[in-house]
């Protein structure tokens, strides 16, 4: 799919917001793809982190808001320790999650979880899962 790049499609506000939340400079990314190759969730994410960095550089908010990648990311930090440009991509994923969570929209809804499901999970899963996926 061809990407049309223009001022109209580039949401600099969104770009700046994610940059501010994550403390990362996307422009440093030179698209080597090490992050994508390192991602343990590679089979389960719809968009690789390399492409997300490109979309962020271009400020493509619409595409970014529909990705499942930040919600499948397990914050394992592999991309982060391997990035040759020293970008903490894990923080970028967190920032993308927060742009939604801070609008009071949950990804996981504790009230809708089944009792059997909760009882099966150890506390550590509930704490970490709610931290990452509820507002």
């Amino acid at each position: 799919m061809a990407l049309v790049i223009s001022r109209r499609t580039s949401d600099t506000k969104f770009h700046d917001r994610v940059s501010e939340l994550s403390g990362q400079e996307f422009m440093k990314c030179f698209q080597c793809g090490t992050c994508s190759g390192s991602c343990p969730m590679g089979d389960h994410i719809d968009t690789f982190p390399r492409k997300i960095m490109a979309l962020l550089q271009l400020g493509r908010m619409e595409e970014l808001s529909e990705l499942n990648t930040p919600w499948v990311c397990a914050s394992c930090h592999t991309c982060m320790v391997r990035c040759p440009r020293g970008i903490d991509i894990t923080k970028v994923m967190e920032a993308l999650r927060l742009t939604r969570l801070r609008q009071n929209v949950n990804y996981v809804e504790p009230s809708n979880m089944q009792p059997e499901e909760i009882i099966d999970l150890p506390q550590i899963a509930l704490v970490s899962g709610f931290r990452k996926m509820t507002s």
């Binding site: 343990p40 969730m41 089979d43 389960h44 919600w71 499948v72 397990a74 914050s75 394992c76 592999t78 990804y107 996981v108 999970l121 899963a125 509930l126 970490s128 899962g129 709610f130 931290r131 990452k132 996926m133």
Partner: peptide, 14 residues
Amino acid sequence: VCCGSYQALGNPEA
């Protein structure tokens, strides 16, 4: 390699 961590809750199949 990551075991999926808290995705046990968000994306248990993954």
